[in-house]
Amino acid sequence: MNIFRLTGDLSHLAAIIILLLKIWKTRSCAGISGKSQILFALVFTSRYLDLLTSFISLYNTTMKVIYIGCAYATVYLIYAKFKATYDGNHDTFRVEFLVVPVGGLAFLVNHDFSPLEILWTFSIYLESVAILPQLFMISKTGEAETITTHYLFFLGLYRALYLINWIWRFYFEGFFDMIAIVAGVVQTILYCDFFYLYVTKGEGRSQLSIPT
């Protein structure tokens, strides 16, 4: 464990908690893409099945349980409890165009052709594009609540910190995982446009307006 990975995990945890609290406190999921949240729940489910098979550390297990729990709680709030506030008309990204190619790629490019490894690879590839429905929805509505932009900022920051973590681990441990690194680079690049807007327009505006 290094400081970059730890702050990355904490940034990820912050994002997940921010979103869950935003929906719970405002009792509304307006502006939130339920599709992205379903994809994230799928990412955590397919990646953390090793919870059942191996124990790495208390930290590792605790964080995985929290991630999975919050992901499903968020999906539940969006599609069940506060369904009336779900903006389905703007959450129209065709997620099958993400899941099918990612599923195929996981079978073609992986470290080991075992079920757990294929699922892990699938979760890595899926995570890199899981935010697209959310970014697409914001581009359609042309705006995002400030709290949603903070959610996206921490979510994007976490994988950027993981990239530094992988540079650190390659340099000090000779460890690198090309699949995770390439997917992580793609994932972080997808946020660049948002990061620019977040930094340049974050201040002084109540709503982040993305030029459609």
């Binding site: 990975r5 995990d9 990820h12 090793d50 191996s54 790495i56 550390s57 590792n60 964080m63 995985k64 991630y67 470290h111 080991d112 490894e117 892990w120 993981y162 973590n165 441990e173 460890f175 690198f176 995982d177 090309m178 995770a180």
Partner: peptide, 10 residues
């Protein structure tokens, strides 16, 4: 070996 350890990451 790369993938013996990558499962320690979240």
């Amino acid at each position: 070996e790369t993938d013996s350890k990558h499962k320690d990451e979240l």
